[in-house]
Amino acid sequence: MGREINWPRWRLALIGGVIVLTVLLVAIFAPQVAPYGPLDLDVAQMLSPPTAAHPLGTDELGRDVLSRAIFATRVSMQVAFTAALLGLVVGTVIGVLAAYFGGWLDLVLMRFMEVLFSFPAILLAVVLMAALGTSVFNAMLAIGIIFIPGFSRLARAATQAVMRQQYVEAAQAIGMGHTRIIAREVLPNIIAPLLVEAAAAFSYAILLESMLSFLGLGAQPPDPSWGNMISTGRGFMAQAPWISVVPGCAIFLTVLGFNLVGDGLRDAFDPHLRD
């Protein structure tokens, strides 16, 4: 509020912000930014190392690795955004209802969340994908479902803290209905930690989507995704390491960027760190 911003403290978050912004812009403007289409073949230049024509080399079919990595950004962002949103919304609804109404509803919802939580994330995703079938949409769904228990626990704990506040009692005492109490008194006071969690979920979703694609469960070839690019590149590590290294670096940088932003958000919302 009119104060000087303490830049050194926010330096990392700022770097993260720049990365995130770049990645988002690249995803949106992929057709404009990429030098080639993701499926364009250059059969004369198969497994070419980086050249002026192909700055980051070509793959085993002569497709431009840079262009494929750029188009793959779209899949990653779509999946991560939808999955994080799904986890945030469904998890928050479940957590708030469990904490607000308590009793047997709390018991049933939370035991169900614990069952979901007890599966290793990747195993659960693979099982869900096996059940739902392999597609980008199902990858979003599977990853989103993985996030639901985490968000629901966070939302439940935060709601329980708010329910102990006297302003909730005051709202009940004036006869305010449940929906209105949740919308006016509860949600605005629990949203900050949930948004921080959503940023963390976003970067984890990028990793999970890459893993699923690597296992052949996400985006299907020939559509590019970072995971399936690494997977195909694996066979050419000796002759053409760039096929795997480029999407690997893309994953690393993007996840780093979102994590830095997430940490920055957490600090910004943490009253103990306010200077």
Binding site: Q165, Q166, Y167, E169, A170, A173, I174, R184, E185
Partner: peptide, 13 residues
């Protein structure tokens, strides 16, 4: 019937 609560810090959103 209306209340006035004890703790001014937590009485208001």
């Amino acid at each position: 019937v209306q209340p006035v609560f004890q703790n001014p810090a937590s009485s208001f959103n």
